[in-house]
Structures are given as C-alpha cells and as structure tokens.
C-alpha cells in the first residue's frame, strides 16, 4: 500500500531528531538534507520542520538544464545525479521552499530523496521513523483522509498543501492549528 510522508507542524518540539536520523540513511553520506526552524526564538520555543514536499511537478527538476533531478516511480524527487549535475544551482533558486542544498566542494546539489532505499520498499524514511512527536508520519492515503476529517478547521479548510504554493505535492502538510477543531471531552 502506498504511503506518504505527512507533517503535523503543531507537534514539533524542535529536537531535530529528524536531522540526526537523516544523516543515518545509507545513501545520505552523513549529511542532513532538511531543516528545522525556530519560528520566533526570542519569544517562545515554537519550531517547525521544513522538509522537501516532493512536488508532483517539481520546480527544481523543471529548472535543471542537465536533467540531473529524476523523479522516482514512487513520486520521490531524487537528489541530483552526480554524473549529470553541472552545479548551476538553478534548483536552489527555483524551489519555492528552499530545499536543495549545495556542496561547493563537490559542485553538487543534494536533497531529500525520502530515503529512497527504504521508501521504495515501503519502509518509512528515517526522519518519520524516529520523530518522537509524530510531527512526521508515514501514512496511507486512507489514514491521511481520516486525519483530514479529524482536524477540520473551523473555517472549513483542511490546510494541507492547499492552496498550493507551487503545485500539488506528494507530502501532505497540516499547518499549526490542528487542535482548533477538537471538541474537549469534558
């Protein structure tokens, strides 16, 4: 059954376990490929992960003059192919979320590939495996649909990647506010 990365930003505690785990994926050369931001560090401890959303029609790949960014059959937008990447950094500018990172020594772009050696066989990516708070989850479409029903916001909108910033994404995001629709038990 196809599973997707699903993000519930309100759960994040800023432990950056996802980044530590990212370095542990076999194909990642011990470099983490995503981000966790302090939202308002002088005020409170709110944090949020910024993960590659694996766009269905990704700007990074479209902007690549060398076709170095391939899309896997699972929908994962892969890291640049070493033999094709010309180091032009178009992708880092094109991505609306600022995801691709650049290694100046190797003259090579690298980015999240959803731990493709795991996710191609249905094994959760390292980040979603370890996330202590369920900010990052690995769910079926049915499970995501159930989440959507559970967390209907009072404005009638389920805020995933809708409205899109750039286009439809394979990763689904629930912005802060998931508890707004919850009825208290007593």
């Amino acid at each position: 059954m196809k599973k997707r990365l699903y993000l519930e930003l309100e759960n994040c505690i800023g432990c950056r376990s996802c980044l530590a785990a990212c370095t542990q994926c076999g194909g990642h050369e011990e470099r983490n490929r995503n981000y966790v931001y302090d939202v308002n560090p002088l005020v409170n401890r709110q944090t949020m992960p910024l993960m590659c959303l694996h766009c269905v029609n990704p700007a990074c790949a479209r902007s690549c003059p060398a076709q170095a960014i391939q899309i896997h059959e699972t929908g994962a937008v892969l890291s640049a192919l070493v033999e094709k990447c010309i180091g032009c950094q178009n992708c880092t500018i094109a991505c609306p979320y600022g995801i691709p990172k650049f290694d100046t020594e190797q003259n090579l772009m690298y980015k999240c590939d959803l731990c493709i050696d795991r996710s191609k066989d249905g094994i959760p990516p390292m980040c979603a495996s370890v996330c202590p708070t369920n900010t990052l989850q690995w769910l079926t479409d049915e499970e995501i649909e159930a989440k959507q029903k559970q967390f209907n916001l009072d404005n009638g909108k389920w805020v995933t990647s809708m409205p899109y910033l750039e286009g439809e994404t394979n990763v689904k995001v629930n912005l802060p506010g998931i508890l707004q629709g919850v009825t208290k038990l007593f």
Binding site: S17, A20, P124, V130, C131
Partner: peptide, 10 residues
C-alpha cells in the same frame, strides 16, 4: 515503536 531522540539516533 522505533522513535528516538537525537541522542538516541547518535
């Protein structure tokens, strides 16, 4: 259930 903090991962 597989979860670990950054200390555990490393």
């Amino acid at each position: 259930l597989g979860k670990m903090c950054p200390k555990g991962v490393t």
